[in-house]
Design a protein around this nucleic acid. Structure first.
Length: 606
DNA sequence: ATAGGGTTAG
């Protein structure tokens, strides 16, 4: 019985002897058939051997071998996996026939490289040829619709999925819900999730991380708890997403429980989880644990260093940031590292050091400074009162200043009492974003501090008739594994009367030792008595009062706030710490404030 | 042969 001539070639490939197989191919010439080529291409994909892959392809052309759709597609995949997108496309364009797999492979090549437009263009072309997409195609296309713009296309792909009866497929479903979550349509994401007939780790993780990435941390925790009780499978991605959410709500006790779970299960990619743990402990105010996790890591990635640097920076520990940064060995700082270090210097009041590092970064030319880095420098100069210099820096930047940058400089003007520049910036800002209440508040504070009361009234008048958008203030405190959340002038908390009475009591007591309410923090057109009442309703005051009422241990009182703490609440907290002898930690959206004995670690700059 | 979720910053 005659054996096909390329059987040996196939065996060599299966044995991983690619060089010998290559020789065999050359020797066989036009006697190489499908099985030989298929084996060669498979081995090239496995080894990512693009050079040999190109030789195999060239050999087919030279010997006038006509590859089947299958083999052409395998070649296409080979080129894609070896990183040769252009070769893949050229082959695709020249294919005499294409099937769903060919199209999907080509689309996937673009999708995985983040080429959204080309992905959609090809998908449309595919539909125009009359071919029906399968579950692979749909999952691939949807995976590239993962931003605010993509959701427009994503919705259309969704309807294609419904028409072809793939909506409930696990892979398509998780792509779909992820697409909606990334497009900030978490409600639609939830509907897709709830309608899935079967769920797996990925779809469950997708919905959890969907909530977490939108900052809906409590919702992320709730759905995790529910799914966990139902016995969902968890892997390192699940726990990483969950820990991010727990960091957001500063839920230290839950964080430790997850840490324990992660240790018990001995999950793979523990490095990633440790990075997230460093971050979580820091955001929960437990820097000691962050550092212990960091120190115990047998291997660190740049993300580990970044997370630790961010932790120190959030706590205003500039010296520790610098010390850690200078001890970075075997790891190259990346763009995030510099953001963390510069922002750490800023929060720690180390302007000179920060500027030096920025110069070093510019001179090294390895990393191009980005908007975030420039913003840190503006913040840094503003902090030490070099307002004019910051203005000059902004004018000389190679990038357009952002609203946030002006906002930070405006804050600096308030602290340093520079109301001429402050007013100039505020006017600009009120023009660009007339609906942001924060700008009015700071401007009003600046005028109030300068005693220019007629200007305070003017600011208030400017707000009249404009719709002022302000994210509602929200503060919370974790006691006994429960998150107690308070909104401004909260009327919903079950203990509301007691809490309000407690705030009032604290208020009377600290007035005796010098606290004066800062009425310019209220921008509503009401009389002073009403303003005072509104000030006392601020969510962080409610959380502080609640904490004093229900935490019996003498330890530090940890409050978290979604916005920046206001001047009056900051002052209130300082006086409460002085009067009660308790230490307070207030984490606002910018940093930690450690308040003890009437002073704050932020040095009244934030 | 082709497919889905993820860590640090802002």
């Amino acid at each position: 019985m005659d054996l096909p001539p390329d059987v040996h070639l196939k065996d060599l490939c299966l044995d991983g002897r690619l060089n010998e197989a290559l020789v065999e191919m050359a020797v066989l010439g036009s006697k190489v058939r499908f099985r030989g080529y298929d084996a060669l291409v498979t081995e090239c994909v496995r080894r990512k051997a693009h050079r040999v892959g190109q030789l195999v392809h060239a050999h087919m052309l030279k010997t006038r071998y006509r590859p089947s759709v299958y083999l052409d597609t395998r070649l296409l995949i080979m080129y894609d996996e070896c990183g040769l997108l252009d070769d893949a496309r050229e082959l695709f364009d020249g294919m005499p026939q294409r099937n769903v797999v060919s199209w999907t492979a080509m689309i996937s090549a673009y999708s995985q490289r983040g080429c959204q437009i080309e992905t959609m263009v090809l998908f449309r072309l595919m539909l125009q040829t009359g071919l029906f997409p399968n579950e692979f195609t749909l999952a691939t296309v949807l995976a590239s619709c993962v931003n605010a713009h993509g959701i427009v296309h994503g919705r259309q792909v969704h309807s294609v999925a419904i028409k072809n009866n793939y909506e409930s497929h696990v892979y398509v479903g998780s792509s779909l819900l992820n697409m909606y979550a990334k497009g900030s349509e978490i409600h639609d994401a939830r509907i897709v999730f709830e309608m899935l007939p079967e769920r797996d780790v990925v779809s469950c993780t997708s919905i959890i991380s969907g909530y977490a990435q939108l900052g809906l941390d409590e919702e992320a925790l709730h759905i995790f708890q529910k799914l966990f009780k139902q016995g969902m499978e968890c892997n390192y991605v699940t726990f990483a997403s969950l820990l991010t959410a727990l960091a957001g709500i500063a839920a230290l006790d839950y964080g430790k429980q997850v840490h324990a779970l992660v240790i018990r299960r001995q999950l793979p990619f523990y490095v990633v989880l440790q990075n997230t743990l460093i971050y979580m402990y820091a955001k929960c105010g437990n820097l000691l644990y962050s550092r212990r996790v960091f120190d115990n890591m047998p291997e660190k990635t740049v993300t580990s260093w970044n997370a630790m640097l961010v932790g120190y920076g959030d706590h205003g520990l500039g010296r520790e940031v610098l010390c850690l940064f200078n001890s970075m060995k075997d790891v190259k700082p990346d763009s995030v590292t510099y953001t963390a270090v510069l922002s750490g210097c800023s929060h720690g009041g180390l302007a000179e050091e920060g500027l030096e590092i920025f110069d070093k970064m510019v001179n090294d030319k390895e990393l191009q400074p980005k908007m975030g880095h420039y913003a840190c420098i503006v913040d840094l100069l503003g902090r030490v009162g070099k307002i004019e210099k910051a203005l000059e820096f902004i004018k000389n930047m190679p990038v357009e200043p952002t609203i946030a940058m002006w906002g930070s400089l405006l804050g600096a003007c308030r602290v340093h009492g520079n109301f001429s520049v402050g007013e100039y910036i505020a006017q600009e800002l009120l023009h660009v974003e007339p609906k942001n209440a924060g700008n009015y508040v700071i401007l009003s504070n600046i005028f109030a501090d300068a005693g220019k009361w007629e200007d305070v009234i003017r600011v208030r008048d400017m707000m009249k008739g404009r719709t002022i958008l302000k994210e509602p203030g929200r503060s919370w405190i974790n006691l006994n594994k429960t998150v107690h959340t308070f909104h401004s002038s909260d009327r919903s908390h079950p203990q509301k009367d007691k809490v309000h009475a407690k705030v009032r009591e604290l208020y009377e007591k600290i007035k005796e030792i010098g606290y004066v309410p800062n009425l310019s923090c209220v921008l509503y057109d009401v009389d002073d008595e009403q303003k005072e009442r509104m000030l006392l309703g601020h969510s962080e005051k409610l959380a502080i009062a609640f904490g004093l009422m229900y935490s019996y241990e003498v330890g530090i009182l940890r409050i978290t706030k979604n916005l920046r703490i206001c001047v009056d609440c900051h002052n209130f907290a300082k006086f409460v710490s002085k009067m009660s002898g308790r230490e307070l930690s207030v984490r606002d959206c910018k940093r930690f404030h450690f308040i003890a004995n009437g002073t704050c670690s932020c040095g009244d700059f934030w």
